[in-house]
């Protein structure tokens, strides 16, 4: 565990070694504003809350977060540094979690930079700041879930573009599994338990529940165990693929 902060630091600063970090932050901030103010009908809704802002996050993340995650392991394998990393005295846990946390904290910073949004709604009206806070927590958990998938796909594919596409695809499945359209397709013929199971696997259902202002322990547990499971898969994938 002593080495985890060192891995974290290296990984975190590597984001800023290239323009990638700044481009990511810029795109994230611009898109989240565009989505909120133009497409989300922020002003028209006449309500002082950030629902339009958070509602777009699952979709916004679908393309942005995989871009953040795709380098994580693919780059190590491509440049051969994975051989260096895996022969240093660090555990698999430290390297996988250290790298993941670096990306997750980075995503958290991107999220925090949207605070003018909070100021704006507080200026315009009298919003439920508790719900805004849980919205942020939920959004960060959601980003973590996407990142954990991205970490695994990045370990699977040496090519970053392929890692990106795989991550988008897998995350898409987890988003839409809670979509009314998808659930309707099951409705009528599938037993209720299956319907519930599909819905319960969805990011969307969980995320919406959290961003309504209540953090249910089960939702929290869902995201955390989702992340843990994908990180374990990452470790397995590294061992399978590192030689290639």
């Amino acid at each position: 565990m002593r080495q985890l902060p060192i891995i974290f630091k290296r990984e975190f600063s590597s984001f800023f070694a290239t323009p990638l970090a700044y481009v990511f932050l810029l795109i994230f901030l611009v898109l989240s504003s565009v989505f909120t103010f133009y497409l989300g009908g922020f002003y028209e809704s006449g309500q002082a809350n950030l629902n339009p802002f958070f509602n777009f996050h699952p979709w916004l993340y679908l393309f942005l977060v995989p871009a953040l995650a795709m380098r994580m392991w693919a780059e190590e394998r491509k440049s051969g540094t994975i051989e260096l990393l895996m022969t240093l005295p660090i555990t698999r846990f430290e390297s996988v979690v250290g790298k993941f946390l670096a990306a997750w904290v980075f995503a958290g910073i991107a999220l925090l930079l949207t605070f003018p949004m909070v100021l704006t709604v507080n200026y315009l009206g009298d919003p439920d700041n508790g719900a805004i806070l849980t919205g942020y927590v939920g959004s960060w958990l959601l980003a973590g879930a996407y990142l954990s998938v991205g970490s695994c796909m990045s370990a699977l594919a040496k090519n970053q573009v392929i890692a990106f596409i795989l991550t988008v695809s897998v995350c898409f499945v987890f988003v839409v599994s809670g979509f009314p359209l998808v659930l309707d397709a099951f409705n009528g013929w599938a037993p209720q338990w299956l319907l519930d199971a599909v819905a319960s696997f969805s990011f969307l259902t969980r995320f919406q529940a959290i961003s309504k202002g209540v953090i249910d322990a089960r939702d929290l547990l869902y995201f955390l165990s989702f992340i843990a499971a994908w990180l374990m898969a990452t470790a397995v994938m590294i061992d399978l693929k590192k030689a290639e």
Binding site: S14, T87, P89
Partner: peptide, 17 residues
Amino acid sequence: QRQIGYLPEGAPCYGDM
């Protein structure tokens, strides 16, 4: 691994550092 110093083939290093 603590006992070993290793130069892998091609001497890979983190190029961005």
